[in-house]
């Protein structure tokens, strides 16, 4: 299962690059506009970068335990019951996100068969930027499935960031 973890982290790195790309793109756009020029469809490209950044980072965020859940009830449970609740929650999320990944794949596949193009200044086939959504959501479902399996096997599910965790306490 170390392989999946590397995969999730690799995608997380792509997500970070995507965010960096948005910043560079917007700063260039501001600079170019001041010089009387522009990057056509910069707003579209930035928006697509954001979609990629969010989706590609979903699995890496999960394995570091950064996604928010309400654990108040869970903390009241005895240890065994709590463990079962954790397994059920992870399995439920795996199924739910599996369906989400499937629906997103269907949507992007449709973009491809319908030849959908963007409506902005530059016409781009939309399935290109939308592919990141597919990759991210599939891996996110996989991450929940992996989590379920790890919980059943009694393996740790959340790796601490090697960098600063940066909690305000």
């Amino acid at each position: 299962m170390m392989l999946t973890r590397h995969l999730f982290n690799f995608c997380g790195a792509l997500a970070a690059l995507s965010l960096l790309g948005i910043a560079v793109l917007i700063l260039s756009q501001i600079g170019l506009r001041l010089m009387g020029s522009q990057i056509p469809s910069a707003d579209d490209f930035a928006a697509w970068g954001l979609s990629a950044s969010i989706f590609l980072a979903l699995p890496a965020t999960l394995i570091r335990g950064d996604h928010i859940r309400v654990t108040s009830l869970r903390q009241l449970m005895p240890k065994r019951l709590g463990h079962i609740a954790d397994i059920l929650a992870a399995a439920f999320a795996a199924v739910m996100m599996g369906w989400v990944a499937w629906a997103i794949f269907g949507y992007v596949h449709e973009s491809w068969t319908y030849n959908e193009v963007s409506q902005g200044v530059v016409a781009v086939p939309l399935w290109w930027p939308q592919s990141a959504m597919v990759l991210g959501s599939v891996l996110f479902a996989l991450a929940f499935a992996e989590r379920t399996l790890r919980l059943i096997l009694g393996l740790p599910v959340e790796s601490d960031d090697t960098n600063e965790q940066g909690r305000g306490e």
Partner: peptide, 15 residues
Amino acid sequence: TARLAELLGAVPATI
């Protein structure tokens, strides 16, 4: 609209 701005000699700006 981008082409129109260009032909007018203006700077097209995406907002």
